[in-house]
Design a protein around this nucleic acid. Structure first.
Length: 742
DNA sequence: CACCGTTAAGTTTTT
DNA sequence: CTTAACGGTG
């Protein structure tokens, strides 16, 4: 029997309203996961729905795992058949099961961002587009955008505003798709569009899935893109029991295609939809909730919820103004130490930052103060060069058509098959329209047929041993050898390990340790998986990048980006770097509009992580790209009503003159040389006395009118970045540039 | 073909 | 200040 007494009325309604479409708008800390878990239990236990007939999709593996654990802990039933997984993993499963319908081979490789980028780069060079005029990212974003909007090859153009078939980029998109098909690979976006394609071309297949899934649940609905929306719509088209849960105020991934319209327009698309708002917050103090509500209230793009809480007022928000980024890190360390002295556990404290690069200085200070900490996210293990190299061997073994993987490792470690030889072999592959691997095999088998391309004896002998190594490994793989055994064979017989051992520098040492860690990851996978295989391992790591350590906290302070903090909560929270051009980021400041709204949502997410005490810190000057920047406090601080915070200025100050002269490492010394007498405003006046402060309209004798978007230094050192009316940006030394104020 | 020095540019990243 | 990517030399 399910206990519904523990739910508030809105939560209970969210559980009990099982017929027809429902949208649950769940504010931060409103018991969203609890409600979802209870709803699933209610379906299974009270309505006697088979776990096999329930589909629950989340965005992160972490969320999926957590939910599954909670359901299985509270229910006396085998929920192995319950499809509770991520969008991408679900789609990958569907594609592998139904691969034959759309001309895929079921051992397809999933390409991540870096693989996609590599393909784009080769396409660009083929078209003679230099990366200087067009960034590969621009093209990637274009391709991504097409897919996020649910378009795939062969489908009529979804939205002519998004996709113009005459566009040169569209040609690149088509070629990109052709490359993927050749490599028997699917990228992240393609997993989703692939399933849409499958369902549109084969209604019988769709029908099978529709009949199976009587109930569909979507978590983090604010982060779905149009393609995911289309998919969800199709899957629930027969039963119409679709339940989406989200919070438009926590939509922080629009730059990855998340479409906030999915949430704003849900009721238009499903006119019979039931709308339920979970507005009571159980997490934070009343002060934090009300302050955060004021900030997010400045956004236009929202449906509007009114968050409230029965929690006590708690203390005011501690806004702390500091001289420099170092002072900020020092302050946070000191504060953590004194909290710890008064009995607060390290695990209950966290510091958030807008950009990963801000973590370094914090780490330095935490380390010197002997504070245990963990960095969540950050540099991804599977992005390391050596790890990618070894995984490329594995990918080649699993899918011999993966030419990208092959060309990555054909000369790693160096075997004398360099760019020139590779080029020749690639040309052959194109001419005969076969895969790179097939050509290599053929060169080894029938060397006489390839005399005309003049490969050196060294190259040929290298190819021979390389090909036979891969063939041996493939054989092992076909005979279901243990993935870890296969990995070891590759590691040692490819010469990779010896190559690292040969160079005794510190870096190679670290690389060897990483490869050992990869080995343990495989062993771990073998003990977890039901039917371990190399393919399964690859799939697991491309679709689930969470590290083991990220899931547990052994009494450490947590450091992470604000993005990484979504869904988490801590008793004591430091939101750092609350400065203009940092939080909100300078790109968003420049573009304004919806971009600022997204930054505001990000700020809102950061604030609402805190349960008891919230610190917001900012530095008057910060070392960015080796230069001190004076950005001033974040606009979001002004959006918090005064009575919710205390605003502490630095205890010390440095003189005006030393500030303007300081740059680079001088900053350090200046920062130590504290002058306790002068008021703090002196420092900020430096910014104000700039001849051309940020925002001023100017005329340049040659380039015409524009506005100053950035101002650094002062006096004869002053530099300004100006955005002209034609959109171009230029940087000038004020003392040389012919500028006048308008 | 491999290595080293110079140069340019620099968000966020559930999958 | 970093790091990735390029171009020249051994």
């Amino acid at each position: 029997m399910i206990n519904l007494e523990i739910l508030n009325p809105a939560q209970r309604e969210a559980v009990l309203h099982t017929d027809g479409p429902v949208m649950i708008l769940a504010g931060a800390g409103s018991g969203k996961t609890k409600t979802l878990v209870t709803r699933i239990m209610y379906l299974l236990e009270e309505l006697k729905i088979s776990p096999f007939q329930v589909l629950a999709l989340t965005f992160s593996n972490k969320a999926a795992r957590e939910m599954r654990e909670r359901v299985s802990a509270e229910i006396n039933m085998d929920i192995g058949a319950l499809k509770l997984t991520t969008f991408h993993s679900f789609c990958s499963n569907v594609l592998r099961s139904e691969a034959s319908y759309i001309g895929l081979s079921r051992n397809f490789t999933i390409y991540g961002d870096s693989e996609s980028k590599a393909i784009v780069k080769t396409l660009m060079s083929r078209h003679g587009i230099s990366p200087k005029e067009t960034s590969p990212f621009e093209i990637l974003r274009y391709i991504d955008n097409i897919k996020n909007n649910g378009h795939y090859i062969g489908r009529e153009i979804v939205n002519p505003a998004v996709v113009d078939p005459e566009d040169e980029f569209y040609t690149l998109y088509q070629e990109f798709e052709a490359e993927l098909a050749k490599a028997n690979a699917v990228d992240f976006g393609g997993l989703i569009t692939g399933v849409i394609q499958l369902f549109e071309k084969h209604p019988d297949v769709l029908d099978r899935y529709c009949k199976r899934f009587k109930y569909v649940l979507i978590d983090e609905y604010q982060d779905t893109n149009r393609a995911q929306f289309t998919l969800m719509e199709k899957l629930s088209s027969v039963q119409r029991n679709i339940c989406v849960v989200g919070d438009e105020d926590q939509s922080i991934y629009s730059w990855r295609g998340a479409d906030i319209r999915n949430i704003l327009d849900f009721e238009k698309i499903f006119p019979d939809a039931k709308l339920i708002k979970l507005e009571q917050n159980y997490r934070s103090s009343k002060t934090i909730i009300e302050a955060a509500a004021h900030v997010i209230g400045n956004n236009e793009l929202r449906k509007g919820k009114s968050m409230w809480t029965e929690n006590p007022d708690g203390e005011v928000i501690h806004i702390k103004e500091l001289g420099s980024d170092k002072d900020e890190a020092a302050f946070i360390s000191q504060e953590i130490l004194s909290l710890s002295d008064s009995g607060v556990e390290f695990r209950d404290m966290a510091a958030f930052y807008r950009t990963n690069s801000q973590s370094r200085i914090l780490e330095d200070y935490l380390r010197t103060n002997h504070i245990p900490y963990r960095v969540v996210g950050g540099v991804k293990f599977y992005d390391r060069k050596e790890v990618k190299d070894l995984l490329s061997y594995v990918r080649l073994v699993v899918n011999s058509r993966d030419s990208l993987a092959l060309s990555r490792i054909i000369n790693v470690p160096t075997r004398g098959v360099g760019a020139v030889s590779l080029r020749k072999i690639e040309d052959l592959a194109v001419q005969n329209s076969v895969s790179l691997w097939k050509v290599m095999e053929d060169i080894v088998d029938n060397p006489d047929n390839y005399k005309h391309i003049r490969l050196s004896a060294k190259v040929k002998s290298s190819l021979r041993s390389f090909v036979s190594l891969i063939q041996e490994v493939c054989l092992l793989n076909e005979n279901k050898a243990k993935p870890s055994a296969i990995y070891e064979k590759i590691l040692f017989e490819s010469g990779y390990w010896d190559h690292l051992r040969a160079s005794s520098d510190y870096e190679s040492q670290a690389r060897m340790e990483n490869l050992e860690e990869l080995q343990s990851a495989i062993v771990q996978y073998e003990s977890d998986a039901e039917d371990p295989s190399l393919l399964g391992f690859l799939e697991t790591i491309t679709l689930d990048t969470t590290k083991e350590e990220d899931d547990q906290n052994n009494g450490q302070v947590s450091l992470m980006t604000v993005h990484g903090a979504k869904g988490l909560e801590f008793h004591y929270v430091f939101v750092t770097g609350a400065e203009e051009n940092l939080f909100p980021s300078f790109q968003s400041v420049e573009e304004g509009g919806e971009r600022i709204e997204e930054e505001r949502r990000l700020f809102y997410v950061a604030m609402t992580r805190a349960m008891e005490r919230l610190y917001i810190t900012f530095a008057q000057g910060r070392l960015l790209f080796g230069q001190v920047k004076f950005n001033g406090p974040s606009r979001f601080l002004n959006e918090i009503p005064e009575h919710f915070y205390s605003w502490d200025k630095p205890t010390g100050n440095r003189s005006n003159s030393s500030f303007s002269k300081s740059k680079g490492n001088d900053w350090d010394e200046v920062s130590q040389a504290v002058n306790y007498d002068e008021p703090v405003f002196e420092v900020r006046s430096v910014v104000v006395t700039a001849k051309y402060p940020k925002g001023s309209r100017i005329r340049h004798a040659i380039y015409g009118e524009g506005s100053v978007i950035q101002s650094d230094g002062s006096g004869s050192d002053e530099k300004v970045t100006i955005k002209f009316s034609d959109g171009s940006r230029k940087k000038f030394m004020v003392k040389f540039a012919p500028l006048t104020i308008i």
